[in-house]
């Protein structure tokens, strides 16, 4: 949709960035993926780095992320996004490289790749969407599923005795010297989106320092998987997900660089 920049004394103060394609997103109503895609591409747009940015899409709901983010992209095998991104960044060290991964992709099947990519301090940005459930395959238990939380594969609620504990992988990778900037954000309300955008901007800028991996977890919702309306899902997220996955910076560069 092309709209005039100025009309009748009014000017555009917010529009979809050109770095997002016009393809309508396939995500369920109210899903946080769309917001995170847009924020990433807004930063790419504002930094004017579309020609230097290469993204890696995961397997999961955001498997088609490359249909929406208007940059060169590669589609990785399940869990291998950071390995693919390592391959790209190592041969094109002056490009901005990011991965976009869900909790199943990054914290279950891709745990090895995640840990070692960060431990090598690859100069990439890892965007990790944590909604505690496998969305694409229909709402199965994820490594980040909360205790007691019902999913199609934990129908009586996740029990630690058999299914283990929610994996706080972001806290785990914070311990690694290769991690430069680690933060946990959300997109459930306008100010959270503003904060996420600042974090993404920093993470892209930090890539120029070549001092380590930037890791942004976005605690997000899954209205379909959680079987709630979008509003209910955001409220539930604030009440249940945030206590387990508190928002804020876990590691900022000054700590690393001194």
């Amino acid at each position: 949709m092309k709209l005039p920049p100025i009309t009748n004394g009014f000017e555009i103060v917010y529009k979809k960035p050109d770095t997002l394609t016009d393809t309508p997103m396939h995500y369920c109503p109210g899903c946080g993926h769309g917001v995170v895609h847009r924020v990433l591409m807004e930063v790419v747009d504002e930094m004017k780095i579309q020609d230097k940015t290469i993204g890696v899409a995961p397997v999961g709901c955001s498997v088609f992320a490359y249909n929406y983010m208007n940059v060169d992209m590669q589609e990785a095998a399940h869990g291998r996004a950071t390995a693919v991104a390592t391959g790209i960044k190592r041969v094109l060290p002056d490009r901005f490289v990011f991965t976009y991964q869900g909790d199943g992709d990054l914290a279950a099947i891709g745990t090895g790749e995640t840990v070692h990519t960060v431990n090598r301090g690859e100069n990439i940005l890892i965007v990790f969407i944590n909604n505690g459930v496998y969305g694409m395959t229909g709402g199965q238990m994820a490594p980040t599923t909360l205790l007691g939380m019902k999913t199609t594969t934990s129908p009586y609620g996740r029990e630690a005795a058999s299914a283990g504990f929610p994996l706080k992988i972001t806290n785990l990778i914070t311990q690694l010297p290769g991690a430069l900037y680690v933060t946990r954000q959300a997109v459930h309300e306008p100010n959270a989106v503003r904060r996420l955008k600042k974090a993404v901007r920093l993470a892209f800028e930090y890539q120029l320092l070549k001092k380590g991996t930037c890791f942004i977890e976005v605690v997000s919702n899954c209205p379909s998987g959680w079987k709630m309306t979008p509003q209910e899902s955001n409220k539930w997220m604030e009440e249940n997900m945030f206590p387990m996955y508190p928002l804020g910076d876990l590691k900022v560069p000054s700590q690393t660089m001194n």
Binding site: R80, A85, G87, R90, L92
Partner: peptide, 9 residues
């Protein structure tokens, strides 16, 4: 998968 990424690049 690193080979994949680098080949793709």
């Amino acid at each position: 998968n690193m080979v994949f990424g680098a080949a793709g690049a």
